[in-house]
Structure formats: C-alpha cells, structure tokens
Amino acid sequence: MHFEYRVQGGDFVRAGQASSQVKKILKQLNVAPQIIKRVVVALYEGEVNIVAHAFQGKIYIDIETDKIRVILDDVGPGIPDIEMAMRPGFSTASPIVREMGFGAGMGLPNIKENTDRMKISSVVGVGTRLEFVVNLKE
C-alpha cells in the first residue's frame, strides 16, 4: 500500500496530521500497538522537523506485509553537518519552534531509537531526505 502526504513548513496547527492518518491505517491493519507507537513517534518527529525547518515537504509511506518504509522529503535549508544534527541536544530550531514544545535536539536521535533502519541525506540550500524502515512483525 502506498500513501503520500503534503506537509507545509511553519504550519504548527496541522503538524502531525499525516502521522495521525498513518496511525489510523496501521490500527486498521491490526499492527501491534507497541509497533504502531514506534512508527508514529518516528514519523511525527520527522513531520515536525519539516514544519519546523523546511518550506514544504512530502511524506511517502509504503506498507508491506512485514515492514513499513517511510521517506520524508523536504525543500528547505538542508543540514550542513548531519553528524552534528544527530547529536542529542544539538538543535538549530527557532524560538517559535521551541515555544511549540520542540527544538530540544532530541528528534533525530529519537527517530533512530524507534526505527530499524534510518538514513539521512541532505544538500545545503536544497533540502533533506530522511528515510526509515520499521519492521511490523515482532
């Protein structure tokens, strides 16, 4: 099954809508609640990252019988130093993002924690692509 969602940079009211939809789909597919939680926490962190840092983005979801593959593609400033961005506590988030309860530099490490495979690639001034896979079978 394939799904796509658009994400608008700066729109904190709607941030999380895509993750919410995916959660409903996984529930309908009877995926174990603990695994759904891992997927949607990682996805929500990724979605919030697009809203917080990029101009716009797209989320591509592919659900197979044994795994879910997620790609978050954004048009934005990109990440100059990915290793640094992966460090817990490192963040370039604006004060507005922090007021929303994010920007503590915990997002990417938490995505890594909740997924079975994760990859980030980025071009400064162009955008960032985050890909992750979560196994759906325990």
């Binding site: 904190f12 941030a15 999380g16 959660k23 949607v40």
Partner: peptide, 12 residues
C-alpha cells in the same frame, strides 16, 4: 497547544 494533544495521540 495542538502539539501537546498530538504528542498524547502518538504516545497513546
């Protein structure tokens, strides 16, 4: 704000 409720949603 909305994100507090969204977080509750994602974290069950």
């Amino acid at each position: 704000n909305m994100q507090a409720v969204r977080t509750a949603e994602m974290s069950d």
